[in-house]
Design a protein around this nucleic acid. Sequence first.
DNA 1: TTATAAATGTGTCACAGCGACACTATGATA
DNA 2: TATCATAGTGTCGCTGTGACACATTTATAA
Lengths: 235, 235
Amino acid sequence: MSTMTNSYDINEFKNPLFTVDSVLFTVKDDALKILMVKRANEPFIGSWGLPGGFVDVDSDTTTDVTALRKLEEKTSVAPQYLEQLQAFSGIDRDPRGFSVTLVYFALIAAQEVSSHIETIDDVQWIDIDKINSLSIAFDHKVIIEQAKERLQQKALYSMVPVYCLPEYFTVGQLKSVIETIIGKTIQRKSLIRRIESADMFETIDEKVKSGGRLAQQYKVKPGVDIVNFERNLST
Amino acid sequence: MSTMTNSYDINEFKNPLFTVDSVLFTVKDDALKILMVKRANEPFIGSWGLPGGFVDVDSDTTTDVTALRKLEEKTSVAPQYLEQLQAFSGIDRDPRGFSVTLVYFALIAAQEVSSHIETIDDVQWIDIDKINSLSIAFDHKVIIEQAKERLQQKALYSMVPVYCLPEYFTVGQLKSVIETIIGKTIQRKSLIRRIESADMFETIDEKVKSGGRLAQQYKVKPGVDIVNFERNLST
DNA sequence: TTATAAATGTGTCACAGCGACACTATGATA
DNA sequence: TATCATAGTGTCGCTGTGACACATTTATAA
């Protein structure tokens, strides 16, 4: 066989630097927060950055696994919701050269991880409104802004915000989480109509105190997908 | 300085194989078609694949540029609409090892490129319903399916389908394109209401024949963004 | 010249789902 | 037992889509 073949030599091209990062949201103390990590390495040592890193090509079967692995290193649990946000690329965004970061968008209940995170000093829940006043690595400010917009959009036409709540939750809790995410109030009645029509939730027999009348508890039916509604809530 | 620093050595990790591919849609002869390329190289030589390739880290400023460059090599023009779809990754999807492909989603008017493509024998518009009966490279069948679903969703709540039409178009043409994309009929009246409320289009003085009464022509106002409606058309 | 077909464009009613808001229900507390 | 706080319901109005009849304008053929 000739040495001139059509087969591709893996080292022929310079490959871009490829990383996976996640924007992990939660709602805690009536504020939208994201998980940030204080960087221990160059570049941007000492700044806050999104949790993430390189793919381990010997053990990660997909980039989803990379994202989950990196998040679990920081939170010790898996997020309740994970989806791809977008890739961000550029010749200037990393001083080491052309780089691509595939960014995931994740949700978790604050209760699931709070005690664990409080024991680590380089991992914190940071209020999304305080991001602009901090030193943030790479283009992560822009990434966070886009992730926030996506979350806000999704909150208007789907039930994703339930993944910021524990297994059992009430209408009041869900209403509060949605309002925190989108930054405006919604009608309790509209939310109840959606809960009933979505057919995503089951009621729990035991009710729970809430400062007034006992509240009905709900949980997500096992195995159901997120329902998308045909209309947005009021913009 | 010690040689033991925290700075990252770019060659320390095996980087995944990274490519950029595009699903370029058009509507032609009342059918939804995508641009496919007959592969001239291994792997999957001889099969049909999506147009794409490696980033040129010396000249591409972002992956968007890579996608546009690769599409222009095949069509000789830039698509009218381009957005990221999603990254697809895995240890098995490419025989050369762990690979990631960042997939873009693009739209163009058939008229813009048809004459150019007809002169090339390894680049073709392929009817999306015929994809399953062809030999398709990598996981591109799955990618195409997801791109199609995204396009169908977008057609229900936005005006993206206009980017499958030439600069000047009529309501009848837009209705036909939307119906081809979503695979069902819509109400002309609903479409006109949307055209009027979107404030994205301007009317053209000159009307055009269409087999009956002369039809009003529209064009996209320069510089406007796609409008998203708060409701979907009927599912 | 006139009738017909074909497509464009309009008028309008019904329906669904969200917003608004008054009203009822139930548990804690004084 | 009265009051407060939160949970939950009833219902009217509004908006945008679906449906469909009707009017308009052009080409074509009798």
